[in-house]
Amino acid sequence: MKENEALAELSSIRSLMERSAKFISLSGLSGVMAGIYALIGAFFGYRIVYQTGAGLGYREHYVNDQFVITKLSLVALVVLLCSIGTAVILSTRKARQKKQQIWNAASKGLLVHGGIPLITGGLLILILLYRGYFGIIAPACLIFYGLALVSGSHYTFKDIKWLGFSEILLGLLAALMPGYGLFFWSAGFGVLHIIYGLIMYYKYDSSK
C-alpha cells in the first residue's frame, strides 16, 4: 500500500464515520429562511399587539385579550409550518446532491432526540396558554427550542449545539425581563437563525 492510498483510505473512513453518525444534509439556507419567516411573523405579531395609530405606538390591545391570543398563536403556527416545510424541502435537495438518504439512522436520531424536548415544550406551552400564563410563553419557546437543539446536535453539525446554547441564554434573559417577549422571540427565532444559517451555509453548503 502506498502513502497516498493510505491517506485516501483514512479520509474515506473518517467521512464514512461522520456520514453514518451525523445528518450532514441539514441545509444552512433553510435556517436563514426560518429566520426571515420568524421576523415577518414577529412584525405581524407586533402589529396585532400594538395597534399603531398615527405614528403613536401605544398599546391598545393587551395580550390577555382572547382574540389577540388566537391571532398570535395562528401567526406562530404559520411561521413554524413554513420553517419546517422549507427545511424539509431544502435538506432533501441537499441530500440528493450529496447522494445521501434523507431518512437514515442519523436523521432519525436527530428527530427523536430533538423531538423529545420540543414536544414536551410544545405541550407545556399549550397548557400555559390554556391556563393564562402568557408572560412565560416566549421564554419557554426559546428555552425548550434551545434544549431540543442541544439534545439533537449530537446527530448533526456541532454549530447547532451553539445555536441551542444561545437560544437557552436568550430564553432565560427573556424570563428575567417580562414584557419584552416579542423582542427576545424575534432575536432568538429570527436573528439567531439568520446568523447561524449563514455561518452553516458558508461553512458547508457553498463550497460543495
Binding site: L16, M17, S20, Q101, A105
Partner: peptide, 18 residues
C-alpha cells in the same frame, strides 16, 4: 467497521443504503 465504530448500533438496511 468504520460505521459500527462511530455508532452504538446500525441496522442492515441503513448499512446497505449507506
Amino acid at each position: 467497521m468504520s460505521v459500527l465504530a462511530a455508532n452504538e448500533s446500525y441496522d442492515f438496511s441503513s448499512l446497505k443504503e449507506l
